[in-house]
Design a protein around this nucleic acid. Structure first.
Length: 277
DNA sequence: AGTTAAACCTGGTTGC
DNA sequence: TGCAACCAGGTTTAAC
């Protein structure tokens, strides 16, 4: 679930709450995608910093731990079904609670039924292993340096469908299956169009559509299909506004043509065959 | 190098 | 009702 808007909503919900907070303990549940990479007790006494986001990853800085190797931070990913919660009084962990950062002021808890999520310690965001995770990521969608011209140049020569390229995150990060479908609809571009065949003008439309789609999702607190909740337990509302995602067979909100669904690279793609060319 | 398929997991829904 | 098959927000690895 968690695409850029959901991760950013989570970050904003935590921002300001972690100031002056110190780690008391780390509790681990079932294994997640990656090992933590450090002994949990080494993080005891570390001061928690402000969370940062890169793509769909969160970076939580830690400083001044009881042991010098505690310095660094945690790289977190919510996977498909993860959600982070800030709990001032944490109940005992449930069967899907796989990571607790217990602090002096509350507990940061990762709940993730499918366990595609991850938490990994790294000595710095630009040192391994975090750096390796982030190295292949494309541009941030709201990076002012990302323009229609740079997007057009990055897509040149690529034969993959534009939908797959958006999902890949190596050109521009942030769009997952929901927002890739929605942005392509807003841009009027058929998802199977070879990426390298988009004109510069269509790249401009796509970039604007991606930005407006993600911005609208941020306003609505993201999308909650099932598992996602922000740091304070609130669900998102964007799913009620989706124009194509999950609407196979229903009429296009613009022209009435039934929305189509097809598998593309092992993922379901939704589009309007009349509005998207 | 670029593209595509399969794998990682659990739970909910659908269909026989 | 029971059970098998299929589907789901993402990334990583292996195999063309």
């Amino acid at each position: 679930m968690p695409e850029l808007p959901e991760v950013e909503v989570t970050r904003r919900g935590l921002a300001g709450r972690l100031r002056g907070v110190t780690v008391c303990a780390v509790r681990l549940g079932k294994p997640l995608r990656w090992p933590l990479g450090i002994a949990p007790q080494a993080l005891q006494g570390a001061a928690v910093g402000e969370p940062q986001r890169r793509g769909k990853y969160l970076w939580l800085p830690l400083a001044g731990g009881a042991q010098p190797q505690g310095r660094g931070g945690l790289l977190l990913h919510l996977g498909m079904s993860g959600a982070l919660a800030w709990l001032e009084a944490a109940p005992p962990p449930g069967p899907h609670d796989h990571f607790d950062l217990v602090t002096t002021h509350g507990t940061l808890r990762l709940t993730d039924p499918r366990r595609f999520g991850a938490v990994q310690w790294s000595p710095a965001i630009d040192a391994p292993p975090a750096a390796a995770r982030l190295a292949t990521l494309g541009r941030e969608p709201f990076d002012p340096a990302l323009s229609a011209a740079t997007l057009h140049a990055a897509l040149r020569g690529r034969s993959s469908p534009i939908k797959s390229v958006l999902l890949g995150g190596r050109v521009v990060v942030g769009a997952g299956n929901i927002y890739a479908c929605e942005a392509l609809y807003a841009a009027g571009i058929a998802p199977r169009t070879p990426a390298g065949r988009l004109s510069r003008q269509r790249c401009a439309r796509l970039l604007a559509a991606l930005r407006s789609t993600l911005a609208r999702a941020l306003e609505l607190g993201g999308s909650t299909l099932r598992d996602f909740h922000d740091a304070h337990g609130a669900a998102g509302a964007f799913q009620h506004e989706a124009a194509v995602y999950g609407r196979a067979g229903q009429p296009c909100r613009r022209c009435g043509t039934p929305i189509r669904r097809a598998m593309q690279g092992q993922r379901a793609t939704y589009w309007c065959p009349a509005c998207q060319r």
